[in-house]
Design a protein around this nucleic acid. Structure first.
Lengths: 217, 217
DNA sequence: GCCCACCTCCCCCGATTGGGGGATCCAGAA
DNA sequence: TTCTGGATCCCCCAATCGGGGGAGGTGGGC
């Protein structure tokens, strides 16, 4: 168990791990963090799998984690780390994603959700805050969450269908792709439209993209 | 260390202006640039309008410009600067956008197009290269351009129609929005489908998004 | 046990979409 | 000048889409 090494009292530097696939962001962030007297950079990860490995190796006090990464998704990395180290303090740091990403990150065990358009002083303040055991949800993010209080969850099937629709498949093609009748596909889409509050498949796709429910490759 | 290869006529440090709306990226990038002996940071801009103002004020040797920015678009800022200072050396530095963004940035006068998943050494090397008057197009970007050799340009009307379709409007609603017949809208969409190589409106929207032809608000 | 959410399939039906033809107008290029 | 591309409108028509109804089956929660 690696959770007991995190004390609420700061008797040493805050050991930080940064995970982001963009070198510009990752190295730039690292360069800023090391300028802080009370912060110590223990590693940089360029994907989720490497983030997990480095977390196991160094067990940092705080981990800054981007969500969109190759090899292993940021959310998946958060889940893996928090199940292994329940007291891990992870901050999701990403550009503006949909509310679905925010929820998934927090559900996976993230202690906070930061946006890249925040001031660096705020980011550093958030690192110190989570080290103290606090949760960090900026008002902008909280507002985004409050915008859709009821999670308009799409079921796995509905997401699968919508993802295929986004690729331009017709109902019949989707039915063939998932091995079901096109009548079934129509029902899934109908329920999806109702949940998202849209009238047609095209708007359903764009709304799902902006809310982070699906992603374009 | 070696400062001999950084410039053919090095009579001083390379004065750099950074424009990016994300403080994490902008400040982080600045923190890395100032560590280079031959680089000098003369300003940071958080939007396109401020980038133009700071360029007028300092007339830097090189400007790193993000494309997606509030107040004034990065492409618009590039166009403004290069018309006023034809010898301005501007590098577009952005995350992966579509080929349309690359073309628009280069057409607007950018001397290069960098991606945020490039190594920082490559970014810094690109700064020194454009200072020498070279053009910088990474192979990844060049490949992206070569992928669509024929500019599948959509006309203004076609883009306008597609943008409205992305919002979920039907042909009839689009027709009312632009004050035309729905038959005309159908023709525009038909031509759009042919240019993008898609079969339906939904795929047209997603392809246009990934290629940077339209953006979701 | 019951209820409810989810997935599945079927019917019907009107509205919309996508694609074919042809036509006019206009501005700019050859 | 002709010619081409863009925008506009019209007709027709098959296929698809979106929404309504009903009807099972499963699994989990109370």
């Amino acid at each position: 168990m690696g959770g007991d090494n995190c004390s609420s009292n700061a008797d040493g530097p805050i050991r930080v791990l940064v995970a982001d696939d963009h070198p510009v962001v990752r190295t730039g962030l690292a360069a800023v963090l090391v300028q802080q007297a009370d912060l110590e950079l223990v590693g940089e990860a360029e994907n989720g799998a490497r983030a997990v490995a480095l977390f196991r190796e160094h067990q940092p006090d705080v981990c800054l984690m981007d969500l969109r990464m190759p090899v292993m998704d940021g959310v998946e990395a958060i889940r893996t780390i928090t199940t292994e180290f329940p007291s891990a303090r992870i901050l999701a740091l990403t550009t503006y994603e949909g509310d679905a990403d925010i929820r998934r990150a927090l559900d996976a065990g993230a202690r906070g959700y930061l946006l890249k358009d925040m001031l660096l002083t705020e980011v550093i303040g958030a690192v110190r805050a989570v080290r103290r055991g606090e949760r960090v949800i900026p008002t902008a993010v909280a507002a985004r969450l409050a915008e859709f209080p009821e999670r308009s969850d799409l079921t796995e099937r509905e997401l699968e269908v919508l993802q295929l629709v986004a690729r331009g498949l017709s109902n019949k093609e989707v039915a063939r792709a998932i091995g079901r009748t096109d009548e079934t596909v129509k029902i899934h889409l109908k329920n999806t439209f109702a949940k998202l509050g849209v009238a047609d498949r095209t708007e359903a796709v764009t709304v799902a993209i902006t809310r982070g429910l699906i992603h374009l490759d």
